[in-house]
Write a protein that binds this DNA or RNA. Structure first.
Length: 536
RNA sequence: GCUCCUGUGGUGAAAUGGAUAUCACGGCUGGCUUCGAACCAGCUGUUCCAGGUUCGAGUCCUGGCGGGAGCACCA
């Protein structure tokens, strides 16, 4: 890596100038006019040396000597030093893009990372929020993998509780088939209505208690059947979204009782009793066991953590992806977990990734679908706009979710996200498709040995691994999205001006170059979990 | 009320304390006998306000104002 060579040279030069311990960065400059890399080292050193920054820059520039791969350096602005790669170094970038490990880094090498995401309510259709969590979680998992980590994908479905009881009531009352996903959905809706209206509130609560206790064979059987149907359907839908199978699924029916037992054993130590409930007093008080002695969401997290650390005792980082409204909740729960399991949490990272709300902006869609927008109906709607291409629809959806930093709400307009013009998943997919189309057609052309040179695109490709590394380090996939859009735009612009295949002949060097772009776009999309179509 | 998040062109976003704040949409203008027009080329800004820290602030700090979320037995 040329960047490391630059860093080494600067460090060495600074030591010679008596400023060896200052912090500096070598980064991508804001504009390509400022070279391929820039450093603020002289600005930082000037402060320590109490000298004029531009003088320090000149001194530093002289002290750098020759750096492999660097053709030119220049002092600019307040005292930046800009670096330009040599043509040979840029050719190396194109070559590197053909290698297996292109775009990977070693940020998390040797680390075991647990990523829990999606976490649906079984019996209920996958909700838009679940969809967002799935998209973010999958990309984060892939970013960790690209950074050398051993990733375990985890799912934590809710398989017991009021939702399930409503569904079981609906199944029984309507005599519906628990093995049919459509009928299962109807059963939940019916149960929910009956509960809300008061028509069967007591009955459903009775079912709920019986399911927890396992005291009614018929109800329990309906529950089991419904769960199996629901899970199967869930896995099929997630596969369509490009989620690789989960390594493990933990269920609330396991985590609840386990968590309750652990919490009960720690009353008077980590937890205390208050108004008949068992609470944890952290930043503020949270209830872990309610006054009936039943585990709340909090205690279930305790059980879940126990299950996770039994399955993967040597994990280094444990991540939970959920809606951002749970941020505060997780802060306190993680705090409690550290007190509860010091041996299992010391030196480990427990992280929560908050996901944004997806706000649909078209009236058309919400009116057609009503208030409840399921992940599946959204996907169907977007697919229709995407000329019936589900892979393009998935790309549009995922791009929209991943293109911005976490914490902000996402406005999603199915029309605009699939607009024929830029800044969308299909835009990047389209650029990729063009490279692939070029490569296909080149296969039928005569390959000739001919010079080919393009500086612009290799200068951009140079920064691909850094974009992935930064996204992985910050847990912010949008850095990759931004980068890919820029690369796709640069490629499209080049493509509009240049012809590759002329009179049935194509230059071997040009072909090699297009392959490099194809690899970069494809690997970038892949790390986001966005489909990489052959044609559109 | 307390706590956390957030405020950037008409709209949606980007910018690890750095250089002339970068893209996209919409709008206007032009481009398909051409390797794919889901594309390309061109035209349009008080970073909410006021102070402060810094060689340098959209970014950090303080105080306002606006938006969102969370604050005891739901998940």
């Amino acid at each position: 890596m040329v960047r490391h060579e630059i860093e080494k040279a600067i460090q060495h030069a600074l030591e010679g100038m008596g400023a060896g311990d200052i912090a500096f960065v070598v980064e991508r400059p804001g504009s390509m006019e400022h070279g391929d890399y820039a450093t603020n080292a002289a600005l930082a050193a000037a402060k320590v040396l109490k000298k004029n920054p531009r003088e320090v820059a000149a001194e530093l520039q002289n002290a750098l000597g020759t750096i492999e791969g660097i053709e030119k350096t220049e002092i600019a602005g307040a005292g930046f030093i800009n670096f330009w790669l040599s043509n040979e170094a840029l050719a190396d970038v194109v070559r590197a893009a053909h290698e297996e490990g292109w775009g990977t880094n070693e940020l998390y090498i040797g680390k075991k990372v647990l990523v829990e995401y999606t976490s649906p309510n079984l019996f209920k259709p996958l909700h838009i929020g679940n969809l967002v969590g799935n998209i973010v979680g999958e990309s984060v998992a892939r970013l960790f993998e690209a950074s050398g980590a051993d990733v375990k994908r985890l799912n934590y479905p809710s398989d017991i509780g009021l939702t399930i009881a409503k569904g079981v009531w609906g199944l029984q009352n309507g005599n519906l088939n628990a093995e049919d996903i459509a009928q299962l959905g109807k059963a939940y809706v019916a149960g929910n209505e009956a509960y809300e209206s008061g028509e069967a509130k007591e009955k459903i609560e009775e079912i709920n208690r019986a399911l927890y206790a396992g005291s009614n064979a018929e109800w329990s059987a309906l529950r089991e059947k419904g769960i199996a149907t629901s899970l199967k359907h869930l896995h099929a839908l997630l596969a369509r979204l490009g989620t690789q199978g989960f390594d493990k699924e933990f269920f609330e029916s396991e985590s609840g009782p386990l968590g309750a037992r652990i919490v009960r054993g720690e009353v008077g130590k980590v937890f205390e009793e208050s108004e008949g409930a068992v609470v944890y007093k952290g930043e503020h008080t949270r209830v872990f066991l309610n006054s009936q002695g039943l585990p709340t969401y909090e205690a279930k997290e305790v059980g879940l953590f126990q299950l996770k650390s039994e399955a993967y005792p040597s994990f280094d980082i444990s991540i939970t992806v959920t809606g951002k409204e749970q941020t505060d909740f997780f802060r306190i729960v993680f705090d409690a977990l550290r007190k509860l399991f010091p041996g299992k949490t010391d030196g480990k990272d427990l992280l929560h990734i908050p996901t944004s709300f997806l706000k649909l902006t078209t009236g058309k869609m919400s009116s057609r679908l009503g208030n409840v927008i399921t992940g599946e109906s959204l996907l169907a709607e977007v697919t229709e706009v995407a000329r019936n291409r589900e892979d393009v629809a998935v790309g549009a959806l995922k791009y929209t979710v991943l293109k911005q930093g976490s914490g902000k709400d996402i406005s999603f307009d199915p029309e605009k996200s699939l607009s024929l013009e830029g800044d969308s998943g299909p835009y990047v997919q389209y650029a990729l498709v063009r490279t692939r189309s070029l490569l296909r057609q080149s296969a039928e052309a005569k390959i000739v040995e001919k010079e080919f040179s393009n500086i612009e695109l290799p200068r951009l490709m140079l920064h691909f691994p850094d974009a992935v590394a930064r996204a992985a380090g910050e847990l912010e996939p949008h850095h990759v999205v931004t980068y890919l859009t820029e690369l796709a735009a640069a490629f499209n612009s080049w493509y509009a001006q240049e012809r590759l295949i002329v009179d049935g002949e194509v230059s071997d060097a040009a072909l090699f170059f297009v392959q490099a772009i194809e690899h970069t776009l494809a690997k970038g999309l892949d790390v986001l979990g966005i489909p990489t179509p052959q044609e559109m």
